[in-house]
Write a protein that binds this DNA or RNA. Structure first.
Lengths: 181, 181
DNA sequence: TAACTTCAGTGATAGGGTCTAACGCATGAC
DNA sequence: GTCATGCGTTAGACCCTATCACTGAAGTTA
């Protein structure tokens, strides 16, 4: 049972997070400003503190949402093999670079992700392990290897480190996926 | 021929960058403050603008320095094989996590590294290609693969994504290096 | 040596940010 | 219809980057 107040709160929170994603996509996480978001929502800065205890809490919420969206993206491919899972990961990553980097990019010293995101991350990893298990023994370590290789490729591609090099990221990704099979 | 003024300038710049590295190591690049650095050097904030045109320029200079130090670290191993090169890379990365992420971490939308750092990066890559060439044909693509795999491993390790998992980063790195040989 | 130029460092200021506190006022609860 | 809850406001403390006009010291030149 949700009260009208609760529904209102939830909606404002959702709108704020939507604007936050836009800001992060445009100027990165450090450029995210509660003040600017509030203005976009038609209110003054301090009002947003009714909805988020701090800027950090908003970012934490975004990270939570990020892990959630990755989990659903991964779950959407079903009981698939590693290649399909890898493809879904890449598509999800390319859909929003800064979202990927918010989760897997430069860590902030002293910041620790909340426990539930670590659990989500573990569930995602379990999917990868399950996919690896269908292709042979030693699924755990093969999944770990798959993760590190795909992340290496993706993070360099998303950061633009291949630009100016004669590299086709998609082909490189495909060939690396094959190396996992 | 350097004048006393030039030498003084160079020294203040060097000291400022040293403090900057400390700040970045402690709180990440977004936490870097020209004001705080100036105070540590015993001057007021605006004085630092005699030495760096902006906060961005200081960070750019740090990135330049970072690429320089990686190049010398890589050059120090001489005409080595891929394994030695990889070991040097990991040691260099572990020596200062935030330095690694400043160069290979989350990109800032709209920011483009200056041309000379890209050249340095290319020279580093050439070393890797040369090392790969000693182990067989197709050195270019094998070097690229080595880079992405090692980066994936390193960036996840440095970001702490292995903590809480039963993973030995050093062993994982070693086994991945073997996969390249 | 004296006059002059260059330049490091200052305080003041503009404009942005996070975040707290006190206050009006509307909404939903009884 | 009264009343508590809580949303949004303004004001303000304290950060930040960055610019500007100014002081005074250092180096340069006549």
């Amino acid at each position: 049972m949700t009260t009208p107040r609760e529904r209102y709160r939830a909606q404002v929170r959702a709108e704020a997070m939507e604007k936050a994603w836009e800001q992060i996509a445009a100027s990165g996480a450090p450029g995210l400003s509660l003040n600017a978001i509030a203005k976009q929502l038609g209110m003054t800065g301090p009002a947003l503190y009714r909805y988020f205890a701090s800027r950090d809490e908003l970012i934490t919420e975004l990270i939570r949402e990020g892990y959630g969206s990755l989990e659903t993206a991964v779950a959407a491919v079903g009981e698939a093999d590693v290649a399909a899972l890898a493809g879904a990961l890449r598509a999800w990553a390319l859909a929003d670079r800064q979202r990927y980097f918010l989760m897997y990019g430069t860590p902030v010293p002293g910041y620790h992700a909340p426990e539930d995101t670590r659990e989500t991350a573990r569930r995602i990893m379990d999917r990868l392990v399950a996919a690896c298990a269908k292709a042979g023994p030693d699924a755990q370590s093969r999944a770990l290897r798959a993760w590190t290789r795909l992340h290496g490729l993706l993070s360099l591609e998303l950061a633009g480190h291949f630009s100016g090099m004669p590299v086709d990221p998609a082909a490189l990704f495909e060939s690396e996926v094959e190396s996992l099979g």
